[in-house]
Simulated assay, not measured.
Amino acid sequence: MRTLTRVSAVAVAGALALTTLTACGSDSSSGGASDGKNVKVKIMVGGLDKVIYLPAMLTERLGYFKDEGVSVQLLTEPAGVQAETALVSGDVQGTVGFYDHTLDLQVKGKQVESVVQFSQAPGEVEIVSNQAAGDIKSPKDFKGKKLGVTGIGSSTDFLTKYLAVNSDVQTSQFTPVAVGAGQTFISALQQGSIQGGMTTDPTVATILDKKLGKILIDMRTPEGSKQALGGLYPSSSLYMQTEWVNSHKETVQKLANAFVRTLKWMSTHSADEIAAKMPADYAQGGGKALYAQAIKSTLPMFTTDGVMPADGPATVERVLKAFNPNLKNAEVDLDKTFTTEFVKNAG
């Protein structure tokens, strides 16, 4: 659902690449990755041009993967749930997506863990169209509405359901609509096929700039996360199958070194400087200044060291158990959903 020529090309190339791969994600030969020299790793990102996943492409642009001696192929899918599927099927070795998928997968019998935690807040915004702004003033008004999410089963879907249930609106009382991000989300909002929805920058910046909608809930900062979700909500991360991590520790350490170096670089550079490093077409047609503003609005969500926030996993578990029947009565071993081993060893 990418609307940009460059990103579409990446998506198509990624899709073609995936058709040639063998399955079995725990096999060290899957995708050609191995420890040592000439390491090759495929990472699927839940939307390469989304600011919440910015560290993935930025690390590539800064040359940090190359510095570590690892060849990383970044692929893209419009929704995190699709990126998750690529990991579980063994088509890629890593996914840049929301940490909450690791809990959801654990109760389904899949052991996946976050190895680098990019963020401590969702970076998501609940937007309402100008036409619906009078009817939707809080999540209590979600009842009977059509609300956009990137994909069914995605983290935007998870968070929308939590906001509803936390305001005494049942998940059956509104309709989530998979509209992706970028232009597809914007078009759905303009056409009235959704009254509101959850999305990220630079889509948020474009909607506000074009005066197509208003912010209902802003979770781009730690403060916004605490207000909406009751605590820090670790979201974008590099997560991988635990078995693969344990059998490729040298490779995982190289990836952690590169990503932590990027997070530190981001913490000491301005939004304008970060934007200048990114592909020009990631601005989604809004121009360089608007893209830089989108980055500035989202920057507070990122960690500076890749370490999981202490109380973050418990917040995610509480949020997911509020609406997810698979998790509600399940025992989740949070210690197995993330590791700090590699980021703490990163230089």
Rank of each mutant, 00 (worst) to 15 (best):
P234I: 07
K226N: 14
L238H: 11
S236G: 15
S237F: 03
K226L: 05
G230T: 07
L229Y: 10
L232A: 10
S235F: 07
D209E: 12
L238W: 08
L212Y: 10
D218P: 05
S225Y: 01
L212T: 11
D218T: 04
K214N: 14
T221W: 04
K226R: 14
T242A: 12
M219V: 01
T221F: 03
I217G: 04
L238S: 06
L212H: 13
E223K: 11
G213S: 12
I215R: 10
Y239A: 05
I215L: 06
G231D: 13
M240G: 03
S237N: 14
L229F: 12
I217K: 09
D218H: 07
R220I: 03
L229T: 01
E223W: 04
S235V: 01
T242P: 05
T221R: 08
Q241V: 08
A228R: 05
L216R: 11
P234R: 08
L229Q: 01
K210E: 15
Q241N: 12
Q227Y: 01
Q241W: 05
I217E: 13
I215F: 06
D209K: 11
T221P: 04
M219P: 03
R220V: 03
R220D: 09
M240A: 02
G230C: 09
S235N: 15
M240F: 07
S236Y: 08
K211A: 06
Q227G: 00
G224T: 04
T242V: 02
G213F: 11
A228W: 02
G213D: 12
L216A: 09
M219D: 09
L208C: 11
G213K: 10
S236A: 15
M219N: 09
L238C: 04
L238M: 12
G231S: 12
A228Q: 03
Y233D: 03
K226I: 12
Q227W: 00
T242K: 13
K226V: 13
L238I: 14
L229P: 04
S235C: 10
L238N: 10
Y239M: 13
I215C: 10
G231H: 09
K210A: 14
K211S: 08
M240C: 02
G224D: 09
A228T: 03
L216D: 09
S225Q: 06
S236Q: 11
E223V: 05
L208N: 11
D209A: 13
Y239V: 02
P234V: 11
L229V: 00
G230K: 03
L208I: 11
K214M: 09
D209T: 05
L212P: 14
